[in-house]
């Protein structure tokens, strides 16, 4: 009972400072009501008490001391937990950095080798061979010679990828635009018959520059005009060749001069 009475009196104090709490007036005895009134009067006087502040000089001295002792921005203390967190993230950060570096290197490699989405150099080299789109050659020797070239640029070659890339770049039409048929005709440098013949025949689809067409056609025409020549025969002295002179054979230079006179 005493405990309950004591708690009730404490509730009066609580109610005095926080009207929302404490006991309701109906639950109070006359003695408790009187005590509540006495405490309320004392509190009333205390609440009206004037507030006091320190001297301004004291405030200034405190602020001056605070300015002297203020932590410097560059000397900020890094909480220890943040250092530990950084250390725990170190492997993940290193792995992410490695992935980024490898990815960047791969992208740089592919962009320098070929445009994204375009057929690879290897595919371009293999395509004409597999599709049988081989140019017609006059004889087997030329075919063998070109086959040797193909072997040199073949993907099966042991040459490094850089070599293949250089080869592809060399035959890449886009690298150096070829002259069109009309341009060649208007230039007047070549005979019209040669230009017509160059563009009339079928040529390798994998390589279509006009210069190569002209070169190929010129080789064929030269070969046709020299069919009587035997490239495998031994060398013949110039003097032994038939001439229009009446006396064949070797003559002294001085006599030849006199005769000409």
């Amino acid at each position: 009972m005493d405990r309950e009475l004591q708690d009730k009196k404490l509730q009066l104090v609580r109610k005095l400072y926080d009207p929302g709490e404490g006991v309701s007036p109906e639950d109070l005895t006359p003695e408790e009501t009187r005590e509540e009134k006495l405490m309320g009067e004392a509190k009333f006087v205390l609440d009206r008490r004037e507030r006091l502040a320190p001297d301004v000089a004291v405030i200034d001295a405190i602020v001056a001391r605070a300015a002297e002792a203020a932590p410097k921005p560059h000397a900020r203390i890094i909480p220890i937990w943040s250092l530990q967190r950084l250390q725990s993230w170190r492997p993940a950060v290193a792995a992410a950095f490695a992935i980024v570096v490898v990815g960047a290197a791969y992208l740089g490699y592919t962009r320098s080798g070929a445009e994204p989405g375009a057929p690879s150099a290897e595919a371009e080299l293999r395509a004409p061979l597999e599709e049988g789109n081989v140019p017609a050659f006059a004889d087997e020797d030329d075919a063998v010679g070109l086959g040797a070239e193909r072997e040199a640029v073949s993907p099966r070659s042991d040459l490094a990828t850089n070599t293949r890339r250089e080869t592809v770049a060399a035959i890449d039409p886009s690298a150096e635009p070829a002259a069109s048929r009309d341009q060649l005709a208007s230039s007047g440098r070549l005979q019209p018959e040669l230009i017509e013949a160059a563009f009339a025949d079928s040529i390798p689809a994998w390589e279509d520059p006009a210069d190569i067409r002209l070169l190929q056609k010129r080789i064929e025409m030269l070969r046709q005009s020299g069919d009587d020549l035997d490239w495998g025969a031994p060398a013949v002295p110039l003097e032994s060749l038939p001439t229009t002179a009446t006396r064949p054979g070797i003559r002294a230079a001085s006599s030849g001069n006199n005769n000409n006179r």
Partner: peptide, 24 residues
Amino acid sequence: RYLERSDEVAFRNLVERHQERVFG
């Protein structure tokens, strides 16, 4: 502000804001 930027004005505000409570 005081700890991270050395803002002494902020510290003065702190002192003046509660001066009566402490001094009283």
